[in-house]
């Protein structure tokens, strides 16, 4: 589901490559006209429009899941999940999240094991919500560092200071990742409900 004005064509080619490797059914849908129609009736805002792209994709996924009586698989991994690096009710919405317990670097290892083409494994992670959008550029840190920090904080349950010491990463960066986690707490919770009895 590329937005052809935003998503580089190489991304679509990579997706097609995987599809032909696995031999699965597919639909190629350009979401650009849909997003464009939306923006004809909404106050312009580039960031909100970026998240809208993710949610339009979710709508389409659930549309077909509805028709076929399918469940939707989520693509979030542990690195994205813990930092909140996903769109709430966008790519964050799914029925099953099969790789959510794996850090980004672990996903890459598994991909190697599964024989995924090398260029797909090694390319820069990107949600392409807007032009030239790259995850590491937006976060300002490499996934190697993010994963080490997250592992220390959440698997080893180390303090921020201890994490900085162990990973030898600047404490400010550790602090930043920690903050990303705290600020995105709402994305990982069910909607807060008023008192229901």
């Amino acid at each position: 589901m590329p937005d052809t004005t935003i998503t580089p064509f190489s991304e679509t080619q990579d997706a097609m490559k995987i599809i032909s490797l696995i031999g699965m059914e597919y639909k190629l849908i350009d979401i650009n006209p849909i997003v464009k129609e939306y923006s004809m009736y909404l106050v312009p805002n580039e960031k909100a429009k970026g998240n809208l792209r993710a949610r339009v994709r979710t709508n389409i996924l659930y549309y077909y899941a509805n028709i076929e009586n399918y469940l939707v698989l989520g693509s979030s991994d542990k690195s994205e999940y813990l930092t909140g690096y996903f769109t709430k009710f966008g790519d964050g919405a799914s029925d099953l999240a099969p790789i959510i317990s794996l850090y980004k670097l672990q996903v890459r290892e598994i991909a190697k094991h599964l024989g995924i083409p090398e260029n797909i494994i090694s390319k820069k992670s990107s949600p392409h919500l807007w032009k030239d959008h790259e995850a590491e550029k937006e976060l300002g840190i490499q996934y190697e560092e993010i994963d080490s920090i997250l592992y220390c904080l959440f698997d080893e349950k180390l303090s921020i200071e201890k994490t900085a010491e162990t990973t030898k990463i600047d404490i400010k960066i550790v602090e930043k990742i920690h903050q990303l986690n705290i600020k995105s707490e709402h994305k990982r919770l069910q909607p807060q409900k008023s008192d229901m009895k």
């Binding site: 129609e37 923006s39 004809m40 009736y41 909404l42 106050v43 312009p44």
Partner: peptide, 11 residues
């Protein structure tokens, strides 16, 4: 109503 929310109608 705001103009920016009615571009579709305007077009």
């Amino acid at each position: 109503p705001k103009a920016t929310e009615h571009i579709g109608d305007i077009i």
